[in-house]
Amino acid sequence: MTPPRRRLALAFATFALAGLTITGCGAIGQAVDCNTAAAEVTPILNEFSTAMTSAAADPKAAEAAGQEAAAKVKTLAGNYDGEVGAALNDLATGLDGIKIDGSDPAGSLESVNKLQGFVTKIQQACA
């Protein structure tokens, strides 16, 4: 693997390990939503990360993995109202917007790094 591909694979792995540890939700209903959302989105993100790591050498496969994960998260977002639903929709948009360009590894890395911001937004919706 070339160094840029290693960096992309590392970014995907780091994103997966960051996961969704959603705690500190205020009201009981919000806590249930947060815990349920976290339980449902975590496997989608783990599956996405695995697909991205194995597709690090294939930009089209990586983008397809992002689109597939985005569709799943978008469907999941339909089950939630308020900030949790909005944050999940934002994550879906971020996943769908991943573009991998072999000639611009820094730009590719930037689109992947933005995903952590969306995960943080979900966490903040539950804080």
Score class of each variant (00 low, 15 high):
Ala65Cys: 06
Gln67Thr: 05
Ala92Thr: 05
Ala65Glu: 11
Asp81Pro: 00
Pro105Met: 03
Ala39His: 09
Lys99Val: 15
Gly82Ala: 03
Val73Cys: 13
Asp90Tyr: 09
Phe118Gln: 11
Gly82Pro: 04
Ala11Phe: 08
Leu88Asp: 11
Ala18Gln: 13
Ala86Cys: 00
Gly29Met: 15
Gly107Ile: 13
Gly117Lys: 07
Asn35Ile: 15
Ala106Gly: 07
Ile28Thr: 15
Thr120Glu: 08
Leu115Asn: 06
Leu109Gln: 05
Asn79Gly: 14
Gly26Ala: 10
Ala127Glu: 13
Arg6Leu: 08
Met52Tyr: 05
Asn46Ile: 01
Glu110Phe: 09
Asp33Met: 04
Val32Trp: 00
Phe12Pro: 04
Pro105Asp: 02
Thr50Leu: 13
Asn89Lys: 08
Gly19Phe: 06
Thr2Glu: 06
Ala31Pro: 01
Asn79Ala: 12
Leu95Glu: 04
Pro105Ser: 05
Val41Gly: 06
Ala65Asn: 08
Gln30Asp: 12
Ser108Pro: 05
Leu91Tyr: 03
Ala127Tyr: 02
Ala61Asn: 12
Ala127Trp: 09
Asp58His: 06
Arg6Thr: 15
Pro59Glu: 10
Ala56Cys: 07
Gly117Ile: 01
Ala62Ile: 14
Phe15Val: 03
Asp104Lys: 15
Asp96Gln: 11
Pro3Thr: 15
Ala56His: 03
Gln124Asp: 13
Gly29Ala: 15
Cys34Ser: 11
Phe48Asp: 14
Gly24Glu: 13
Ile100Ser: 00
Gln116Thr: 01
Gly117Asn: 08
Gly97Gln: 12
Thr14Arg: 08
Thr21Val: 13
Ala56Asn: 14
Ser108Asn: 06
Phe12Ile: 11
Leu88Phe: 07
Glu68Arg: 03
Met1Leu: 10
Ile28Pro: 00
Ala51Cys: 08
Leu10Asp: 12
Asn79Val: 07
Asn79Thr: 01
Met52Ile: 14
Ala87Gly: 08
Gln30Pro: 00
Lys121His: 14
Ser54Tyr: 03
Cys25Trp: 04
Cys126Met: 01
Gln123Pro: 03
Gly26Arg: 15
Gly102Tyr: 00
Ala106Ile: 14
Ala125Tyr: 04
Pro3Tyr: 10
Asn46Phe: 05
Val41Ser: 14
Phe118Leu: 02
Gly26Val: 12
Ala38Leu: 02
Ala11Trp: 12
Ile44Leu: 13
Lys99Thr: 07
Leu88Ser: 10
Ser111Leu: 12
Leu109Arg: 13
Met1Arg: 03
Thr93Ile: 14
Gly117Asp: 09
Gln123Thr: 15
Ala61Pro: 12
Ala9Gln: 02
Ala106Asn: 15
Gly107Cys: 06
Gly94Phe: 01
Ala51Thr: 04
Leu115Lys: 07
Val84Ile: 15
Ile122Phe: 09
Ser111Thr: 11
Lys99Glu: 11
Glu40Cys: 02
Ala51Glu: 14
Lys72Ile: 00
Pro59Lys: 09
Lys74Met: 13
Thr50Ser: 12
Pro4Gly: 02
Leu10Glu: 07
Gln123Asp: 09
Ala92Gly: 02
Phe118Glu: 13
Phe15Met: 09
Thr14Leu: 12
Lys121Trp: 05
Ser111Pro: 00
Ser103Met: 07
Ala16Asp: 04
Ala61Cys: 01
Cys126Trp: 11
Asp33Thr: 09
Leu109Trp: 08
Ser103Pro: 03
Leu17Ser: 09
Ala39Ile: 01
Ile100Lys: 06
Ala61Glu: 09
Gln124Thr: 06
Thr50Val: 12
